[in-house]
Design a protein around this nucleic acid. Structure first.
Lengths: 122, 122
DNA sequence: CCGTATCCGGAGCGATACTG
DNA sequence: CAGTATCGCTCCGGATACGG
């Protein structure tokens, strides 16, 4: 934890890229924000909180995040079934960084923020 | 720049997702790291500095980054042609955040870092 | 030297239907 | 309520060839 080894640009890029990989996926961030702050949500809560997502996508992204140790899953063996999701410690530690990214995103030129494509083709 | 408007989890997620979108792509980060610190690199320099990348990918990612105002492109009308790339101010401002992400990535559980896939299928 | 065009395989994602 | 299975489309990225 003292000094990190010397990073070449490539090594550093690979590290970040690896991290980004965990966050990649159409719905990962939306899910993470639902869980930030130590919140615990049920499957159906997430489903309702994220309009437009399908069950397949929700469970798929959730499973990915779980495999990557960002979120944890608790199954209550009851009837009816209840499953709850929450962030791991490592997942929680992402919060400030994501906030920094959010601030960076806010500083983006308007064209970028709106996802403008230059329709100028001819 | 005082207080930002109230962000719902969804709004925040969308903002970050949008920012992440800019960084998405197999080679974006590698390129960015090549340019960090205000460095100016020629097309062929980047090509040589990033083994394994194809011209198509290099130019494609470069164009994306350019459109997203992260990198800027300077064309010298000479013979032979010379084109140089460097980060915009907004691009530069990404550096600390990416470093935070790198640190987060470093703190990842070993299994995650190694990109383990549980081969347990049957 | 810098860039464009085309072909092609694979991964991601969405819609829908079904199960414990 | 929570999760699985399948299909099909789209986009991404790699290889190769060609143009200014």
């Amino acid at each position: 934890m003292g000094k990190r080894p010397e990073y070449t640009a490539d090594t550093a890029a690979r590290g970040v890229q690896n991290a980004l990989r965990v966050l990649e996926g159409r719905w990962k961030l939306v899910i993470l924000f639902q869980l930030f702050g130590g919140k615990v949500r049920r499957f159906s809560e997430l489903e309702r909180a994220i309009p437009g997502i399908s069950q397949k996508m929700l469970i798929q992204q959730l499973r990915q995040l779980e495999k990557d140790k960002v979120v944890a899953r608790i199954v209550h063996h009851e009837v009816p079934p209840r499953v709850e999701y929450h962030l791991t410690d490592w997942g929680q530690s992402l919060c400030p960084t994501l906030d920094a990214l959010l601030i960076w995103a806010e500083a983006a030129p308007a064209e970028v923020k709106e996802g403008k494509e230059e329709a100028a083709e001819a």
